[in-house]
C-alpha cells in the first residue's frame, strides 16, 4: 500500500483528550466524533482537513485515555495516515485494531509538505523537500491483523 497527501502538523504529547474531548464520548458514531476531532487543540482542523491528508506529530502521540474514539475520529475525518516520532502504546494498538495507518518516523516534515508513504517497503518521500527516509515496516504478526481487516477478523480466522 502506498499513499501520498498534504501534511497537517502538531507537536509532542498530543493527548486523546484533545483528539476527541470526553464531552463528546456520549456517542460512538464515527461521523459525530469526526466533527469534533482535534477541537481543543486546533479549531481549524475540521474545516481544513481533506480526504487523504497526513497528520504528523512529535513524541508520544495519543497519550492518555484508552478511548478508541480517538483513532476512529481521526480516520473518519479523512486522515490517511499519522506519522509521529513515537506513539503512546494504547493508541498504537487502537490504531492498528481500527485500521488507521500509523508510521513511527522522526524525519524532517513540515506543515503543508506533500509526503508519500510506502508501507510495504518502509519508505517515506517528502516530495516538497525532496528527502527520502525509512521506517521499520510492521512485523508479520501485525501485518496479518491488518491484512485480515482488523483484530477480530484475524482471530476469527485463526480460531
Amino acid at each position: 500500500m502506498k499513499i501520498s497527501g498534504n501534511v497537517i502538523k502538531y507537536g509532542d504529547n498530543v493527548d486523546t483528550d484533545v483528539i476527541i474531548p470526553a464531552r463528546y464520548l456520549n456517542s460512538s458514531n464515527p461521523k459525530e466524533l469526526a466533527e469534533h476531532c482535534m477541537e481543543d487543540l486546533d479549531k481549524t482542523f475540521v474545516k481544513r482537513v481533506k480526504q487523504g491528508d497526513i497528520m504528523v506529530a512529535g513524541n508520544n502521540f495519543g497519550c492518555g485515555s484508552s478511548r478508541e474514539h480517538a483513532p476512529i475520529a481521526i480516520k473518519e475525518s479523512g486522515i490517511a495516515c499519522v506519522i509521529a516520532n513515537s506513539f503512546a502504546r494504547i493508541f498504537y494498538r487502537n490504531a492498528i485494531n481500527t485500521g488507521l495507518a500509523i508510521v513511527e518516523y522522526g524525519g524532517e516534515i513540515d506543515e503543508g509538505d506533500m509526503v508519500e508513504v510506502d508501507f510495504a517497503s518502509g519508505k517515506i518521500f517528502n516530495l516538497t523537500k525532496n528527502i527520502e527516509g525509512n521506517f521499520p515496516p510492521f512485523p508479520p504478526f501485525l501485518q496479518n491483523i491488518i491484512e485480515k481487516g482488523g483484530l477480530l477478523a484475524s482471530l476469527k480466522e485463526n480460531k
Binding site: S65, S66, E68, I90, R93, N97, T98, L152, K159
Partner: peptide, 30 residues
C-alpha cells in the same frame, strides 16, 4: 480493560493494562 487506568491492579501483584474497545471485544469473544 478498555480504560487506560486498568494498570491499577498491579498493586496486587497482577499484570493489568489498558487497551481499546476492539481488544476488549476480542477479549470478550476469545
Amino acid at each position: 480493560g478498555a480504560d487506560s487506568h486498568t494498570c491499577t491492579y498491579g498493586a496486587l501483584g497482577a499484570f493489568s493494562t489498558g487497551v481499546g474497545s476492539t481488544d476488549m471485544a476480542s477479549g470478550m469473544a476469545y
